[in-house]
């Protein structure tokens, strides 16, 4: 670990001032990913600005019937919050599918959005990696790429975003509130994370001098028909090969509204509005689910070790939509797939 300075921010404005003054500084909250990366010399911040004591740790209903989640709410508090369990069980389920109880206790909501890829080459400073060292090349292309992306890749990077929570937030149409020197702004969740393109070193559209302050959920929570299915190489404590967040609003046997987001397949939580549109007004059956999966995966591209993910994602989408339609969401405790 490289030596660094440590400073504590007193309030959000203070945090913004401090990060603006030192472009090589980083915020630290739970540190569950940042500290690992610092030990590996992948992240080399000049300064850690400790934001863990800022008053951003509350969960409150909003005027429009939604929920505002402070950026410093620990993942475990969020998953077990009564309002989240009742109104946004998809979010609770996705969080509990991730990491371990110990990590969820430490990890913050904002930090979860900002976690970095688990690509082995990103972690190994000996090997080329465009995300870690722009222009050095992508070792995962032509290398070990079992956990890598099948959608939205570029010739520069095929890394995935590792979050479970973000997949649910994408499906739920969350908004991200951020504060910078110019004041506050809000981003649609889909606009928060980026595709790798020519700049895989930049994971998000958060500006270097901005801080995430809250996540806002709209009123519609899909509490009746939802499921989060995470498929991985062991039954717990592993990153997703493919994960699927599905949410449906049903009227009779027909789909009034559908949401579908995938994790483990792209540089960001993957949503495809065309696939969702194709479900709207259809019967909640295998045929409709299969059509939606085909649309979502139309442009999917596999690499040497991860081509199986395309078929796995297709079957997983159908399964998860079926679980959602039947109101038998995947349990995160009993690992039998429903």
């Amino acid at each position: 670990m490289i030596p660094f300075h440590y400073a504590r921010a007193n309030d959000v404005a203070d945090a913004v001032r401090m990060i603006s003054a030192d472009p090589a500084a980083k915020f630290i909250a739970g540190g569950t990913n940042l500290v690992d990366l610092m030990k590996e010399n992948v992240e080399r911040p000049s300064r850690l600005i400790d934001i863990s004591r800022l008053p951003l740790d509350t969960i409150e209903p909003t005027a429009d019937g939604g929920l505002r989640i402070g950026a410093l709410v620990p993942n475990s508090d969020l998953a077990y919050h009564p309002l989240v369990e009742q109104r946004y069980p998809l979010l609770a389920s996705a969080i509990l599918a991730g990491a371990s109880a110990q990590l969820r206790n430490m990890a913050s909501t904002g930090g979860n959005l900002l976690q970095r890829t688990r690509c082995a080459y990103f972690y190994d400073t000996v090997t080329p990696c465009n995300k870690r060292e722009p222009g050095s090349g992508c070792s995962a292309i032509g290398g070990i790429n079992r956990i890598h992306a099948i959608l939205g890749t570029s010739e520069n990077c095929i890394a995935t975003h590792p979050s479970d929570m973000c997949v649910a937030l994408a499906a739920l149409d969350a908004r991200v509130r951020v504060t910078g020197p110019a004041g506050e702004r809000a981003m649609a969740f889909d606009d928060f994370h980026r595709l790798p393109g020519d700049t895989p070193q930049t994971d998000t559209n958060l500006l270097p001098d901005e801080i995430v302050t809250a996540i806002e959920l709209p009123a519609l929570g899909f509490a009746d028909n939802y499921s989060y299915l995470k498929i991985r190489d062991r039954l717990s404590y592993a990153f997703a090969l493919v994960s699927i967040a599905a949410a449906l609003e049903l009227e009779g046997g027909a789909i009034k509204q559908a949401r579908l987001a995938l994790g483990g397949v792209a540089h960001k939580p993957w949503r495809n509005t065309a696939a969702e549109a194709a479900l709207r007004g259809q019967r909640a059956d295998q045929a409709s689910f299969s059509r939606a999966a085909d649309i979502l995966l139309r442009d999917a591209k596999g690499y040497e070790h991860n081509a199986f993910k395309i078929e796995l994602a297709r079957r997983g989408i159908i399964r998860t939509l079926t679980q959602a339609a039947q109101a038998t969401p995947q349990s995160q405790y009993d690992k039998k797939i429903r």
Partner: peptide
């Protein structure tokens, strides 16, 4: 049977999962 494998990138002659997050052993759920 189901999890363990030290993964090499033979282009570099290096182990790519040299940690117990990515080198899988059974967890309680397994």
């Amino acid at each position: 049977a189901l999890h363990e494998e030290t993964v090499f990138d033979h282009r570099f002659g290096r182990i790519m999962n040299a940690n117990i997050a990515e080198y899988h052993v059974p967890v309680n759920a397994d």
